[in-house]
């Protein structure tokens, strides 16, 4: 437990000290979302219609930009192999780092979503649904992303491959995430969608740490 907390604390401290990375991710999210009204026109009905989808896709892409940070730095400076020689199992190291990533990189994205949602004229019910669906669904983004990050950690130019590997696997989260917001806007129950998202999160929680740990073992050898 002490090791787990030490690692969690260190990862968060590092993310905090390298705050510029977070600022850049947030700016990317804002800019990417801003491009849509410029692309499709400022008509409020259209924006309200595509808003939930745009926000989810934007969050997904912004999250993708942060994935390489999960393991890359630790791999390059030799910290990762030292961590593996410590008392935590690799699966646990992966899980700890995923938690740190989610808190430090994904949670801020969720925090600014309401503002962006207002700018896209998303209905008030939809904004709440947006936050809930992101809170429940976004752990999948970190979990699946960690597998991709672990597979590509030892590669030069791994970033492009990472998106090719990870994005197709993100599709179910995207579909159910957007569907829950659309349901809320249409004043229909959104609980089933949120439950499906929760199911995806739990499933990913079971599978992904093991897959990512196997990939990391490979990278260190």
């Amino acid at each position: 437990m002490r090791s787990f907390l030490a690692l969690l604390k260190r990862d968060m401290l590092l993310a905090y000290r390298q705050g510029s990375a977070l600022t850049m991710t947030l700016s990317f999210f804002v800019i990417a979302v801003t491009l849509f009204p410029l692309g499709v026109g400022p008509e409020l009905n259209v924006l309200a219609r595509i808003g939930p989808g745009v926000l989810w896709v934007g969050a997904l892409l912004a999250c993708l930009l942060t994935l390489d940070r999960i393991f890359q730095a630790d791999f390059e400076d030799g910290t990762l192999e030292q961590l593996m020689l410590g008392p935590l199992s690799i699966e646990f190291i992966v899980l700890t780092k995923i938690i740190a990533h989610w808190v430090m990189s994904v949670l801020p994205l969720i925090a600014i979503t309401p503002i962006l949602a207002i700018s896209l004229n998303v209905h008030a019910d939809g904004i709440w649904a947006m936050i809930f669906s992101l809170l429940i669904g976004s752990p999948v983004l970190s979990l699946i992303g960690a597998v991709g990050a672990a597979l590509t950690v030892a590669m030069r130019r791994g970033g492009v491959l990472l998106s090719l590997l990870v994005l197709p696997l993100y599709i179910p989260v995207l579909i159910f995430g957007v569907a829950s917001v659309e349901a809320a806007v249409a004043l229909m129950p959104m609980a089933p969608h949120l439950m499906l998202l929760g199911g995806l999160s739990l499933g990913a929680l079971v599978v992904c740490p093991f897959a990512a740990a196997a990939a990391l073992r490979l990278a260190v050898e």
């Binding site: 260190r10 401290l13 590092l14 000290r17 390298q18 390059e76 400076d77 030799g78 910290t79 192999e81 030292q82 020689l85």
Partner: peptide
């Protein structure tokens, strides 16, 4: 066991 490798395993920001 304690292993010291080629890389410094230090975090530059700390």
């Amino acid at each position: 066991l304690q292993y010291v490798g080629h890389q410094d395993a230090l975090k530059m920001a700390m």
